[in-house]
């Protein structure tokens, strides 16, 4: 059991680290789905800083960012442009010879355009040396397609993505888990509450750590699902994190959700198995002698399987005067 968890931990941590670092083409098209409960922006900064370390050329396509983020090589404002204009603009910027990372801060303005189709759009941008990371806000509705039977563009994107990272707030995830453990109704946050005026709840959009639900699709079609906590530590943020006692592995910025210090651990019930922790007036345990006696008892269906039927398990019945014995039907 412990070995299994250890294996999962090593394997999945390696996987998420490769996705975040855009290494080895493990995921050519990563989709980050965020909401106002936890923005995907800190995750994006994480990916940018990691790509910078591995000297990848970073192109940032902006629909809703007004200032060029730090560490980005190319900043292309695209607000108000049609998808064909964006596509034309980007194809001129891409050089297939160098390793590059293409980041979209949102795809919504494109998704809402009736003539936009994700497959040809991404097809022209993808190349063996390029990785695409796109942020999409899951709580912003997409304008319904003109053809009511057609899938909307976001559904297509989810289908095409080689990895989907869904972000959640750590505070909310922990609150939900605590409620679940006590069999209580899970608390609602943000728009879920259905209250006018509540759009962003307390504990939302932490810039320090993000809960990430990863779904990585392999070429075989098998998918790996795992939950992580990603700490978006900067040079100064690291010390603060340590002071808060937030992360166990100090050098690690990515840990499994269940390994995170804030996440409730399953109760250790070794004592209960022995019957000692039980608080009742009955003694439900067995002494060693009782256990031995119980094991000696031969149950009827085992006895009946012996050659000749054995003696146990038969029905013994004495006919009474009131019984009407029928020779054709009854036998003793």
């Amino acid at each position: 059991m412990a070995a299994e968890i250890q294996h999962r931990r090593t394997h999945n941590l390696l996987l998420i680290n490769r996705i975040l670092s855009c290494r080895d083409q493990v995921s050519p098209f990563t989709l980050i789905l965020d909401s106002l409960q936890q923005s995907g922006w800190p995750l994006l900064t994480k990916i940018i800083s990691r790509a910078k370390i591995s000297k990848v050329h970073i192109t940032f396509v902006s629909f809703e960012t007004v200032r060029k983020p730090a560490q980005v090589d190319d900043f292309i404002p695209c607000h108000g442009k049609s998808h064909l204009e964006v596509q034309r603009l980007l194809t001129t910027k891409i050089q297939p010879s160098r390793k590059s990372l293409l980041i979209f801060d949102t795809l919504h303005p494109l998704l809402n355009q009736p003539t936009f189709s994700p497959a040809p759009f991404l097809g022209t941008l993808l190349s063996p040396s390029a990785t695409i990371v796109a942020l999409v806000h899951a709580d912003v509705p997409v304008t319904a397609p003109a053809n009511v039977y057609a899938a909307d563009a976001l559904t297509l994107l989810r289908y095409m993505a080689t990895a989907i990272l869904t972000t959640h707030s750590l505070a909310h995830t922990v609150a939900r888990k605590i409620a679940r453990d006590r069999s209580l109704a899970e608390p609602a946050f943000g728009l879920e509450t259905g209250v006018d005026g509540v759009v962003v709840s307390a504990g939302s959009n932490s810039a320090v750590n993000v809960v990430v639900e990863m779904e990585q699709r392999r070429k075989s079609g098998r998918s790996v699902v795992e939950w992580f906590v990603v700490a978006t530590t900067t040079a100064t943020g690291d010390g603060e994190l340590r002071a808060m006692g937030d992360l166990r592995g100090r050098s690690e910025d990515v840990v499994l959700l269940e390994d995170h210090a804030a996440y409730p651990k399953p109760a250790l019930d070794n004592g209960r198995e022995e019957g000692e922790g039980m608080d009742s007036t009955f003694n439900l345990g067995l002494t060693e002698e009782q256990r031995r006696d119980r094991e000696k008892v031969v149950l009827p269906y085992f006895d009946a399987q012996k050659e000749g039927g054995g003696l146990g398990g038969r029905i013994l019945y004495d006919m009474g005067a009131e019984d009407d014995f029928d020779e054709e039907e009854d036998e003793i």
Partner: peptide, 21 residues
């Protein structure tokens, strides 16, 4: 009424006084 202060999607790293009602 009630005034709630919360982080937006592009919240800066440290903002004291936010996340309160």
């Amino acid at each position: 009424g009630v005034l709630m202060i919360s982080h937006g999607g592009q919240a800066a790293e440290r903002q004291t006084g936010s996340d309160s009602e």
